[in-house]
Each structure stands twice: as C-alpha cells, then as structure tokens.
Simulated assay, not measured.
Amino acid sequence: MKLIIHGGFFSESSTNQETKKAKQNALSEIVTQGYDYLKTHSALETVIYTVALLENNDLFNAGIGSQIQSDGKVRLSASLMDGKTEKFSGVINVEDVKNPIEIAQHLLTYDDRVLSGDGAQSFARENGFEYFNPITNQRQLEYEAKLNQQNNKGTVGCVALDDEGNLAAATSTGGKGFEIPSRVSDSATVAGNYANKFAGISCTGVGEDITSGALAAKIVTRVTDGFTLKDASDKSFLELKAFDGFAGIIGISAAGEIYHCDSHPHMVWASFDVNLQVFK
C-alpha cells in the first residue's frame, strides 16, 4: 500500500515560512489519516477521502479557501480516475459547493461523467449537495488587495495504491485567482489527473502548461509502454521545457514506485509508504 499527496506550489519568501510550515504539518496529518483509511478501503475510496480532507483545509487552494476569480466568485474543479475500471469523472467550474471531489465521485456511476458550470451545480443540488460558500476571510482580503496574483499556483491531489494492486488518482482546485470567469484548468481533465492499471498521476502548476503537455496522461501512457515512473516523468518534464512549462506531479506505479517531480522548486507534498515522508 502506498499513498502520496500534494498541496500545490507556494511562493518562496521569508514572509511565507510560517505558511510553509503549516502546510507541511497539515500534509503530514492528512497523509497519515489517508494511509490509515487505505488499510481498510480501496485506492478509489481513499483518494476521494483524502482529497476531501485537503479541500476542507483552508491552507490549500481547493474547496474551502479556494482562490477567487476576477468577477469575485469561486468556481471549483475536481476530477477522479479509477485505474481499475479506467473511468474518469469530474466537475468544472461548479459554484457554491464544499467538496467538488465528492460530486465527481457521484458522477462516476453515470454515463455523462464530466459536468460544468450551472449543469454541475444543478446536478449537485439534485443529489443532496447543499449550498456552501467556500470564500474565507483570508481569500477575500487577498482578492480585494489583488495579492493572489503573486501566489497563484495551488491545487491538491492524491494518488493511492491499495493492497489489491489497484490505483486511483484525484485532483481538486480553486483555480489560479483573478482568471477570466469560467476558465478551465487542467485539474478536471486527463492532462491533470490520470490513472490506469499501470500508474496514477496528479498534477499541479499552470493549467495551460499541463494541458499543452498532456502531462498526466502522457506519463501514465509511457509507464504503460514499459518506462519506469521516474523515466516517464523525467522525459515528459524535459518536453515541457520547449515552452517553459510550470508543473509538478505526484505518482505511483503498479510496481510500487512512488515519485514526485517539479519543473520549479517549492511544491509541497507528502507520502506514506510504511513510513511517513513530508517534503518541501
């Protein structure tokens, strides 16, 4: 059993050291909770549970504490992929909900598995997801001061390998802040979140760069074709250099390889593979 999570990037400066430490502590607690959950649950159930924990922590840009778009609204995106069934589901730019990853979970049983905007919100309401305002006081202050233009690369994600050898990946984001309303990030696409029987990947960084590089799907495809997870990731990141792509990934292979990689420093992540690791 293996589990790895990320909390996106952060701006490295002396004023952010307290926040950096708080994120490290939160990731340590959440990955430990997630690993304990994995002991008695599937990889799919675990990535949903763990990403929901990340969405419920206002230190991260997903769910509660998500960044605010240029029109003053929060729009959330999240996706889920079951490596066992190779089914993908997600919501894009859904408003006034608490845990978009749980809506993605609900959609996994439908034929129409990716919904956006008003349709996603209507689906959420029809299926018992109540109104919730995810804007925190801190995000509102950042919005009013336009501070989030300086720290706009945050997402959360989780990849799990369960004791039956099944993989799953889940990713959730509140966007980059001050974007054009209804901009679509990578997080609810196979570029940002992908898993099959061979590997699972969750991405963070600049959504447009991750989408241009088809990053998650490309890495998993290379692992499927025989690459190690490290080699598949490293080769894919070399290809991002053609357009100075900004990205980070976490991943696990069916062989048990656990890996993280970023094109720039300061991605926060944590893993649990018998022992706890928290880095950055």
Rank of each mutant, 00 (worst) to 15 (best):
F246K: 14
E55R: 07
F60M: 05
Y49H: 11
I5Q: 09
D36I: 04
A52I: 00
E179L: 05
G154V: 03
D82W: 04
A199D: 12
D163E: 13
K84G: 09
K235L: 15
E130C: 00
A169G: 14
D273R: 02
S66N: 04
Q140K: 14
Y110W: 04
T50L: 05
D262N: 12
N133S: 14
T211N: 07
S70Y: 03
L161R: 04
S185R: 01
K235P: 00
V159P: 10
G83E: 12
T221P: 00
N196I: 07
E126V: 00
I4G: 07
T15Q: 15
T19L: 15
G119W: 01
I250S: 12
Q150N: 13
E208S: 13
D162A: 07
A270E: 03
I135K: 15
R75Y: 06
I64M: 12
T211D: 02
N56K: 06
E55M: 06
F132A: 02
L44S: 01
G34M: 11
G128C: 08
I210P: 10
L3A: 08
G200R: 05
E239Y: 06
A191F: 11
A78W: 10
D162V: 07
L108W: 08
R75V: 02
K241T: 12
S79D: 03
A120W: 11
A78Y: 13
E86M: 11
Y110E: 13
K153D: 13
A216F: 05
T109N: 13
L53V: 02
F279D: 08
N25K: 12
S28L: 04
L53Q: 14
Y143S: 07
G63A: 04
D244S: 10
A124S: 15
K153N: 07
S122D: 14
S263M: 02
F279G: 08
W269L: 14
G34Q: 09
K146N: 09
D225F: 09
F246S: 04
V91F: 06
A214N: 15
A145C: 00
V274Q: 14
S14Q: 13
Q121C: 05
D162W: 07
I201C: 05
S79E: 02
Q67W: 08
M267P: 07
D96T: 02
F10E: 08
N93Q: 14
G213Q: 10
S77F: 05
A145I: 00
S236W: 07
N93G: 15
F237Q: 02
K20E: 13
G83N: 01
E142Q: 15
A145F: 00
D234N: 15
K2Q: 12
K23L: 06
Q69H: 07
K21L: 14
V114P: 08
I92A: 11
N61A: 04
L3V: 03
I258R: 01
K21M: 07
I201R: 08
V159D: 09
S28V: 00
Y259S: 08
E179C: 03
A52R: 15
T50V: 12
G192P: 02
N127M: 09
E130P: 00
I30P: 09
S122F: 08
D162H: 08
L115N: 03
A120K: 05
